[in-house]
């Protein structure tokens, strides 16, 4: 069942209740924001549980088993527990910066969902700069991480914040350039146009078919952008304890944790939309295809975590600039030649 008509019906209902168009727009936008937030909370709770189960099964353990079927309510309980935990601000911390860091990290991760097409017609707003907007807003997260690192006034946190800044700016460049190939063949930055350009031909118009190199570069850079293992230097437990979020507790810590999983879902959703044909697919409703492909991508990211050991800082930085960046340029030249040849 397609979900877009339900949202259209609710909007019509608002209009028929006598609201002016501007007010109905505002109400529906606020409603969508709350809806997306609830959706992300449920997704994050599910993903944390899923990650724990996957890591457990890869290591031949069971993982959480006690609360609900195979421990499915474990993360709900964890969230409730975190809600009751005391919120500690260190005496030496910069209180303002310390407070705003989790707010900025979460808000930027959240605002990315405006342009993600969850299914046919299921997009909050199809901005014409879609993919550029999403890259820009997710990179803002780094300001929050830097603030957390600096504001904590803790040496581990500072190292973690600095590392994440260096890492995210380094992997930002190959990430943007790998998406450039798709923008070249689509001729538009709107997410809906990118999905529409990949429809038909039984999946043979997916961008991954013609740009496998771009997809590989994107996945590696996205793993680094989301601070996932093997690129999780900013929060390397064994050396930095927890990195930038070391001084955070209670709900502020929960916001960082939530943002991390939201970011992981975001990069997987972009991979789905840009390279894997978005919500295109036969038989099943479009949103199920989107969710299925995105969760498959999330699974790949979790799989990475238990397959590759963590890199050293110098390996990490040099890999971005000396391997991924030249490869990304090769990909752009290849796509340029391909697009001209196909024309």
């Amino acid at each position: 069942m397609e979900l877009a008509p339900i949202f259209a019906w609710i909007y019509d209902l608002l209009i028929s209740l006598g609201l002016s168009v501007a007010l109905a727009d505002l109400v529906s936008q606020i409603g969508l924001a709350v809806f997306v937030f609830s959706l992300l909370c449920v997704l994050a709770l599910f993903l944390v549980w899923w990650e724990r189960k996957i890591s457990a099964h890869i290591q031949q353990r069971f993982g959480p088993m006690m609360t609900g079927w195979h421990g499915v309510f474990q993360t709900v309980m964890d969230a409730l527990k975190l809600l009751q935990k005391e919120d500690i601000t260190p005496t030496v911390a910069d209180r303002g910066v310390f407070f705003w860091a989790p707010v900025i990290v979460f808000t930027c991760a959240f605002a990315a969902y405006i342009v993600i097409p969850f299914g046919k017609g299921l997009i909050v707003s199809d901005l014409n700069i879609g993919i550029l907007y999403i890259i820009a807003i997710t990179t803002f997260t780094i300001i929050g991480l830097m603030m957390a690192g600096w504001g904590s006034n803790n040496k581990y946190a500072l190292l973690g914040g600095m590392r994440s800044a260096a890492q995210v700016v380094s992997y930002e460049v190959p990430l943007v350039l790998s998406i450039m190939g798709v923008v070249m063949v689509t001729g538009s930055m709107s997410m809906n146009d990118i999905v529409a350009a990949q429809s038909g031909w039984a999946g043979f118009r997916w961008n991954i078919i013609f740009q496998p190199l771009g997809f590989v570069i994107y996945i590696i850079a996205a793993t680094a952008e989301a601070n996932r293992t093997p690129f999780d230097l900013p929060e390397a437990e064994q050396e930095l304890v927890a990195g930038f979020n070391i001084e955070y507790s209670g709900m502020k810590f929960a916001m960082f944790f939530l943002a991390e999983f939201v970011n992981m879902f975001t990069v997987s959703a972009i991979a789905t939309t840009v390279f894997l044909g978005g919500w295109n697919g036969p038989l099943l409703p479009s949103w199920m295809w989107f969710l299925g492909k995105t969760l498959a991508m999330v699974f790949v990211l979790m799989w990475f975590r238990w397959t590759f050991p963590r890199l050293r800082v110098d390996q990490l930085m040099e890999f971005a600039w000396k391997v991924l960046l030249p490869l990304a340029f090769v990909n752009i030249i290849y796509v340029g030649v391909l697009a001209l040849w196909l024309k």
Binding site: D25, L26, Q29, I30, L32, A33, V34, V36, F37, P102, V103, F106, T107, C108, F110, A111, Y113, I114, V124, S125, L127, N128, Y133, M251, A254, M255
Partner: peptide, 19 residues
């Protein structure tokens, strides 16, 4: 089109503050 970005940013901050 772009007003939704502002709404989402404000809503994000409001929701986090509420939590």
């Amino acid at each position: 089109d772009y007003s939704v970005v502002l709404v989402f940013l404000i809503a994000g901050i409001a929701i986090v503050s509420f939590v």
